[in-house]
C-alpha cells in the first residue's frame, strides 16, 4: 500500500512523471552504451583494415543508397556452418571505418562479409546488371543504371573525406586532395565492385585465429 501512496504523488504531478520516465528508461542504456562506447578494443583495427579509398567509399555509399543491406548481412557468426559457407567469422576490429555499420538483419541473399576476392570483377558486373544471367533462380534485383552513371555523380568525395577525417579516420592531406582524381573515369558500377572486392580482407596472419 505504501508504494502506491508514493506512486500517487507521481501520478498527480506532470513534472515528476516526466522525470521518472526519463530516469528509469535511461538506466539500461547507460549501463550498456557507456562501456561499449569506451571500449578501446572495439575501435582498434585488425592488421589489414584500412580506411576506404575514394572508389571503395563511393561504392559503399552506393551499396547504402541501393539498400543492398536489406537483403545481405555482413556478419559471419562463429558457427561451423557459417565458417564453412562464408569463411572466418567477423571481428569487431574489421568494422572500425564503417559509418554506419552494415551488418544487416535479414539474409534474403547470402552474407557478403567475406566476399572480397571470391569472384572476378567481371562476374560482379554481369551479376549486378542481371543476376539471373549468372544464377538462374536468383531473386536479387538487377541494377542496370549503375554502369550508366559516373562515380563522381554519387556525391562530393572531397567533402566526404573531410567529414570522415573529422570523425577520426586517418586520411592525409594528399588522400583528400587526390580523392577526386581517383574517381576519374570510373562508373558507379566500378566503384561498387571496388567496395565488394575489399569486403572482409581486413584479417591477416597477424590477427589471432585469423583462419577461423
Amino acid at each position: 500500500m505504501n508504494g502506491l501512496t508514493i506512486h500517487r504523488k507521481i501520478e498527480e504531478h506532470t513534472g515528476l512523471l516526466i522525470f521518472g520516465i526519463l530516469i528509469v528508461s535511461a538506466i539500461g542504456g547507460l549501463v550498456q552504451l557507456l562501456p561499449v562506447l569506451n571500449q578501446e578494443s572495439l575501435e582498434t583495427a585488425t592488421s589489414n583494415t584500412r580506411p576506404y579509398t575514394a572508389a571503395q567509399l563511393t561504392g559503399r555509399d552506393i551499396y547504402i543508397r541501393e539498400g543492398c543491406s536489406v537483403c545481405h548481412s555482413q556478419q559471419v557468426r562463429p558457427l561451423i556452418a557459417e565458417l564453412e559457407r562464408y569463411g572466418p567469422y567477423s571481428r569487431a576490429g574489421e568494422f572500425v571505418y564503417d559509418r554506419p555499420f552494415l551488418w544487416g538483419s535479414k539474409r534474403t541473399g547470402p552474407d557478403l562479409h567475406r566476399l572480397g576476392g571470391k569472384y572476378s570483377d567481371d562476374w560482379h558486373r554481369i551479376h549486378l546488371l542481371d543476376p539471373r544471367a549468372v544464377v538462374a533462380e536468383s531473386i536479387m534485383p538487377a541494377y542496370p543504371w549503375l554502369d550508366k552513371r559516373s562515380a563522381k555523380e554519387t556525391g562530393n568525395i572531397t567533402a566526404k573525406f573531410i567529414a570522415l577525417r573529422r570523425l577520426g579516420h586517418p586520411y592525409s592531406d594528399e588522400d583528400i586532395s587526390g580523392a577526386e582524381a581517383e574517381l576519374e573515369g570510373l562508373t558507379e558500377m566500378d566503384a561498387l565492385i571496388a567496395y565488394l572486392q575489399v569486403l572482409g580482407t581486413g584479417l591477416s596472419g597477424e590477427d589471432e585465429g585469423a583462419a577461423l
Partner: peptide, 13 residues
C-alpha cells in the same frame, strides 16, 4: 548524406 557519429560495433549497439 551524413556519416554516423559511431562506427562499426559501437554503431551496431
Amino acid at each position: 548524406k551524413s556519416y554516423s557519429l559511431y562506427a562499426g560495433a559501437q554503431d551496431a549497439v
